[in-house]
């Protein structure tokens, strides 16, 4: 049990990638705090995951500092510490080509993806650094390395996460705390089904056309799966992950150029 005794927090952990990571950590022996905006989805996740006292749900929205603080505080109140922070919550709404883009859409995407990562990272570092052990895993994207038309709000936020991660890694390199990004290719999660059609429209595509485009760019000619991302998260969270920091790990079936 590689993560026995560890406490993990996963934002946006009731479904999709976050949920798969939470289940992976749970299987490896950790206690996990999952977060989401909907109490109903939280209750459903707790029921399905069946982790007993090792799973805890905290309702909350990461789009504000107060929202992030409440999640962190609740996790520490429940389990006494945070060893592994997975900044997974994210998405974007209000997609449009730059020439037509509205300010609120850019602001909302930055809050959802980037500011939330900054806030939670800063808060958990204050718990991790004095204890000399920690793992921060930021769920970025293939679009944190590349860029597609019509989705600049998402691409910009994910690139920002990658830069933030590299800089932070250099700051904390000798403290026993690592910080890395996972950059998944397209995965057909619930949030992709929710937000994908609007993103596709902003690119001048149908939803299926968008999925096909991502698959066609990959060497594997298919989308990725949540389990593939979760396996990398478990590695980064493990003891052996101590020597990996500031990295942008691609889980994209051979899409990214670097």
């Amino acid at each position: 049990m590689e993560l026995q005794g560890r406490v993990a927090v996963i934002t946006g952990g009731t479904r999709g990638i976050g949920r798969a990571i939470a289940e992976g950590f749970l299987a490896d022996g950790a206690s996990v705090v999952i977060n989401g905006r909907s109490a109903e989805k939280g209750a459903q996740a707790l029921n399905e995951m069946n982790g007993g006292d090792r799973v805890h749900f905290v309702q909350g929205d990461v789009k504000s500092r107060e929202g992030c603080q409440a999640i962190i505080d609740a996790a520490i109140a429940k389990y006494g510490k945070i060893d592994i922070m997975v900044n997974n919550a994210g998405g974007a709404t209000g997609h449009a080509p730059v020439i037509d883009l509205e300010d609120w859409a850019m602001e909302d995407s930055l809050k959802w993806n980037f500011w939330s990562t900054f806030w939670c990272t800063q808060m958990v570092l204050r718990d991790m650094v004095p204890r000399g052990w920690g793992r921060i895993i930021n769920v970025s994207s293939l679009e944190g390395k590349h860029g597609k038309p019509g989705v600049s709000i998402y691409v910009t936020a994910k690139h920002a996460i990658n830069g933030f991660t590299k800089s932070c890694a250099q700051e904390i390199g000798t403290t026993g705390v690592t910080i890395n990004c996972i950059c998944p290719g397209a995965i057909e999660t619930d949030i992709m089904r929710d937000e994908g059609p609007a993103a596709a429209a902003s690119m001048g595509l149908t939803y299926q056309g968008l999925l096909d485009w991502f698959a066609s760019e990959a060497a594997i000619k298919r989308l990725n799966t949540c389990d593939e991302v979760a396996a990398v998260a478990s590695l980064l969270a493990s003891e052996a992950g101590a020597g990996i920091t500031g990295s942008m790990i691609s889980v994209d079936g051979g899409t990214a150029a670097y």
Binding site: G173, G185, A219, I220, R222, N224, T225, E228, V232, G243, I244, T245, S247, I249, S250, V251, D252, G253, G254, T255, A256, Y258
Partner: peptide, 11 residues
């Protein structure tokens, strides 16, 4: 689903 990747283990 991981291929064509240059996986760093370089601290």
């Amino acid at each position: 689903g991981i291929t064509g990747t240059s996986f760093p283990v370089d601290g």
